Simulated scan of single mutants.
Amino acid sequence: MKRPGPLLTLLAGLVLAVFLLALNATTGTPGGTNASSSRQERSPSPAPTRSSGSPGPTATASATPPPNADYAGRTDDDSAAIALSLRDGKAIAYFCDGRTKESWLKGDVEDDGTLRLTGKNGARLDGTLKEGKVIRGTVDVAGAHHGFTADKAKKPSGLYRATATVRSATIDAGWIVLKDGTQVGVLTRDGLASPAPGFDPETGAVTVDGERLTARPATP
């Protein structure tokens, strides 16, 4: 038999090459468009970015005046009594020796408990409320300087006052009731001072020149 000639071998190679090209076009090659799209779909989402701005200011609680309360005590030399009433950032104080010397003072209470009160004839009180329990300070009345301590009062302890016109005379009386129940007061009748009579702390009843008056808690 005769072997196949060179022409037959060439034709067989061409057929094999056409077959391989057709197979490659049908299946696609790695790294094509489909593979690229698949990788893009599986790409992780970018991490969230943090704001570089600084945080806004923190709200702070507004300052408030000391709570409403009454305080009563004596001067350091035990020569007089003193009482104070604090209400809504205002204060009134009464200094009296139970005989003829007295002074009413008033002013503001700072949020930190500092008191600066003034009265007639240059009277002055400087004090500080400590932990809402005691007021410690000094008071200047009629040229005399006194240190004092006034503790928080519990009724009937505290500050009382009565004003009225009795038989054409102007009556103004003040009392300090200490925690042991002692009453220290001065009554002025048309500007003339004298020891104040005692009053009933339960009802406030007091008799002055035959007339019944009512002593009431004094507040700013």
Rank of each mutant, 00 (worst) to 15 (best):
P4T: 07
G5A: 07
L8G: 04
L8A: 12
T9G: 05
L11I: 14
L14P: 02
L20H: 04
L21Q: 11
A22R: 13
T26W: 15
T27A: 11
G28S: 10
P30L: 13
T33D: 11
N34L: 15
S36P: 00
S38G: 12
S38P: 00
S38T: 12
S45D: 13
S45W: 08
T49R: 15
T49F: 11
R50D: 07
S51L: 10
S51M: 06
S51G: 14
G53A: 14
P55G: 06
P55M: 05
P55I: 03
P55L: 08
P57T: 04
A59R: 14
T60R: 11
T60A: 13
P65E: 02
P66Q: 06
P67N: 09
N68I: 09
G73N: 03
G73T: 06
R74Q: 10
R74I: 14
T75P: 00
T75V: 06
D77R: 09
A80H: 10
A80E: 05
I82E: 00
I82G: 01
I82W: 03
A83I: 08
D88A: 15
G89E: 05
K90Q: 15
I92T: 12
Y94V: 13
G98V: 10
T100W: 01
T100A: 09
E102K: 10
S103C: 07
W104H: 10
D108H: 09
D111C: 06
D111S: 14
N121E: 12
R124W: 04
G127N: 02
T128Y: 00
L129Y: 02
E131M: 05
G132L: 02
K133F: 00
V134K: 06
I135F: 01
D140W: 08
D140G: 04
A142C: 02
A144V: 08
A144Q: 11
H145K: 11
H146V: 03
H146A: 06
G147C: 07
F148M: 02
T149P: 00
A150Q: 00
A150E: 01
K155I: 02
Y160F: 15
R161S: 09
R161W: 14
A162H: 08
R167P: 00
A173P: 01
W175Q: 06
V177Y: 04
K179L: 03
V186N: 03
T188Y: 08
A193P: 15
A196S: 07
G198A: 14
E202H: 10
G204D: 02
A205F: 08
V208C: 04
D209T: 03
G210M: 09
E211T: 14
T214H: 14
R216D: 03
P217Y: 02
T219K: 11
T219D: 07
